[in-house]
Every structure is written in structure tokens, then in C-alpha cells.
Amino acid sequence: MLAEPIFLPRFWTAQPPASYVFLRDDNGVPAEFYREMADKLSEPRIVESDGPHEAMLTHPEALASALLTAAVD
């Protein structure tokens, strides 16, 4: 059973909702780079959060709040 192929005809055409979290204090990667990546998504919800590139370690509450906001429809 595990060797049977899976048929997903609409997989590559699906438009799932997308979100993007920008970190305001991120000096590790230029903001333009992040904006270019977000522009490749189809109408993403853009959420900004305080914190640097290591926000998971330095600003976990702010990042968690931003992720929750990004995940809500």
C-alpha cells in the first residue's frame, strides 16, 4: 500500500492562504530581500514584529503574537 502513487491533480494549482512575518530590527538580511520573497506569494497577509533575526530567542512573545496574527483568517 505504501508504494502506491498518490494522485493530487490540483496540488500545483492550489492557492493556499499565505502570511509573511517581517522582523523590524532584522539586520541579518536586508528588508528588500524579505519584501521580494513576500512578493512571490499570492496576496500574503503581512505582519510586522519587533525583534532581530534571532527573534525566537530574544523576542519570543512578540514573535508568537505575530505568528498567531498571521495564522488567523
Rank of each mutant, 00 (worst) to 15 (best):
E43K: 13
L41W: 09
V47T: 04
G28H: 00
W12G: 05
F22M: 07
L68S: 12
H59F: 00
H53I: 02
S49W: 03
L57A: 13
A14V: 01
Q15P: 02
D50I: 06
R45A: 09
F11E: 11
G28T: 01
A71G: 14
P16Y: 07
Y20Q: 04
A14H: 07
D39L: 04
S42K: 15
V21H: 03
A31V: 10
H59L: 02
L57S: 12
A70P: 05
S65C: 10
H59E: 09
L41C: 11
D26Y: 01
F7L: 06
N27L: 12
M1G: 15
M56N: 10
V72E: 14
A66F: 05
V72C: 10
A70V: 03
P44A: 07
E36P: 02
P60C: 02
E36H: 10
A31E: 11
A3F: 10
H53R: 01
I6W: 12
V29E: 00
V72P: 00
V47R: 01
H59Y: 04
V29R: 03
T13R: 12
E54T: 12
P44Q: 05
T13P: 02
D26R: 00
T13F: 02
D26F: 00
F22W: 05
E54D: 15
F22S: 05
K40Q: 13
S19D: 03
L8Y: 07
S65R: 13
E61Y: 07
V72G: 10
S19L: 07
E48A: 10
L68I: 06
S49K: 06
N27W: 06
E43S: 13
K40A: 13
A14D: 08
L2D: 13
Y34C: 02
L23V: 00
A66S: 08
P5C: 01
L41H: 09
Y34W: 08
L2F: 13
P17E: 11
P52H: 07
P5D: 06
Y20H: 11
A66L: 04
V21Y: 04
P52N: 15
H53L: 01
G28M: 00
V72D: 14
L41Y: 11
A3P: 02
D50T: 12
V21S: 06
A31S: 09
H59Q: 12
Q15E: 14
L67E: 03
A70C: 08
S49N: 08
D39Q: 12
L23N: 01
M1K: 15
M37D: 04
P17L: 11
P5K: 02
A66G: 09
P17A: 13
W12D: 10
L57W: 13
F7M: 03
A70H: 06
R35N: 05
D25F: 00
E36Q: 14
H53F: 04
R45S: 10
T58K: 04
F22R: 09
L41T: 08
A70D: 08
F33W: 12
L41P: 05
W12M: 08
A66T: 06
H59C: 05
A3W: 09
D39A: 15
